[in-house]
Design a protein around this nucleic acid. Structure first.
Lengths: 138, 138
DNA sequence: GCTTGACTTAGACAAAGTCCATTGTAGGAT
DNA sequence: ATCCTACAATGGACTTTGTCTAAGTCAAGC
């Protein structure tokens, strides 16, 4: 993740304690935190960090392409630091757990020209929904 | 759409003016209204209908499988009455226009067992994003 | 070590949606 | 036809998620 900090500095990002903390919180694999969760964890390390800063920083990371926004439920957006490997998501309809998945095939190729209505398509988002083993057992 | 009303009555739905109006508003193809838009149109026909009732009714229609919830942007949920023919969505990243599309292929088959993590998958949602002809021209 | 403009802050604000106590009513029972 | 009652509707308070702004702070270049 320090690569991330390096990359950001290289792009002229002004490095502040707040931004560093947000980037650190997002470290790890299969992490899909809401903005509020990011804020909560950031506060543990930097108690005076404000919500607005967390939102700003997350927004910038998304713009820079370092983090993906995913909206698997209709509550809060989640932030996925695994932005450099394309992937989709598998969501538990009951507990909301999220896993990154890598389907075979290319959904873009599955949309014939007649079904494109003249759109220039740039992106496909696939969300699988189901029940996770934990919830199925309960 | 009166089929819908019939079906609902058959399921023991108590028919009220409010519910009828909400169902009528959702009539039509390629309609993807937000709850607020549904409310606005319902008010035209039944001025005293409340927002809570619209939300409740939409929620019930979703539970009954008569209407689909789609969240193409992260603002409001949209309600899609075309629930009986499986389809996916094509969204303009600029103006937010939504089209129903029918891709070939089956994305469910594209997720190998090793990528299912023990989930029982029940549903796949595919959202294509791009720029519509209108916005491209502007 | 200054300066400056970018960054952060707190809190007000907004949009979307939920909750709840109260009031109303559809539809079966009489 | 009227009455009953469980289910539905109401409206307003509340919650959640996110944005905006004015004022204060600070990283980084000089």
């Amino acid at each position: 993740m320090s690569d991330l900090l390096e990359r950001l500095r290289g792009r002229g990002w002004r490095m502040t304690a707040q931004r560093r903390v947000v980037a650190e919180v997002l470290d790890g694999d299969h992490v899909h935190l809401t903005a509020d969760e990011v804020h909560a964890r950031a506060v543990e390390r930097l108690p005076e960090i404000s919500r607005a800063t967390v939102y700003n920083t997350l927004g910038e990371l998304v713009t820079l392409g370092e983090v993906l926004e995913v909206s698997t439920d209709r509550r809060a957006k989640r932030y996925d630091p695994n932005a450099h490997r394309p992937h989709h998501h598998l969501v538990c309809a009951q507990c909301g757990a999220i896993r990154d998945v890598h389907p075979t095939g290319n959904p873009l190729a599955d949309l014939p020209a007649t079904e494109r209505f003249g759109f220039t398509i740039s992106d496909v988002e696939v969300t699988y929904r189901g029940v996770c083993p934990n919830c199925a057992a309960a």
